[in-house]
Simulated scan of single mutants.
Amino acid sequence: MIQKKYISKNHSKFLIKYHIIFVCKYRKRILTGDIETSMKQILLNIAELSDFNIEVMESDKDHIHMMTRSQPKLSPLPRIFHPLN
């Protein structure tokens, strides 16, 4: 279920959500069975180690959709692609 409550810190209140889509190269239909389960588990493990939460995650045969929630200090872009680096 998607959480709609704001997160409060000492001097801020925020609600930041990202809709992230991971697509297989050339839209190959390989996300089935064990591969789909493994990918979802890997993404959940990354979320546990990082400072963001996956609220909803669904997959099709060629892509995975995620609705994530994070704090304003995180960027959805990888560091190598971040325009400020």
Rank of each mutant, 00 (worst) to 15 (best):
M1L: 06
I2P: 01
I2E: 13
Q3E: 10
Q3C: 11
K4W: 15
K4L: 15
I7M: 06
I7Q: 06
S12A: 09
K13T: 03
K13P: 01
K13F: 04
F14T: 02
L15E: 01
L15H: 10
K17C: 09
K17F: 02
K17A: 00
Y18G: 06
H19D: 01
I20A: 09
I20W: 08
I21N: 12
F22L: 15
C24P: 03
C24V: 15
K25A: 10
R27Q: 14
R27M: 11
D34Y: 08
I35S: 11
E36Q: 14
T37H: 08
S38I: 07
S38R: 10
K40E: 13
Q41L: 09
Q41T: 12
L43I: 03
N45P: 03
N45W: 04
I46W: 05
A47I: 02
E48A: 10
D51C: 08
D51M: 05
F52H: 02
F52A: 03
N53H: 10
N53V: 06
V56G: 05
M57H: 02
S59Q: 09
D60C: 14
D60M: 12
K61V: 13
H65R: 13
H65T: 07
M66G: 00
T68S: 06
R69I: 03
Q71E: 08
P72C: 02
K73H: 14
K73R: 13
K73T: 12
L74N: 11
S75G: 06
P76N: 05
L77C: 11
L77D: 02
L77I: 13
P78G: 06
I80T: 08
H82C: 09
P83A: 12
P83G: 05
P83K: 13
N85C: 08
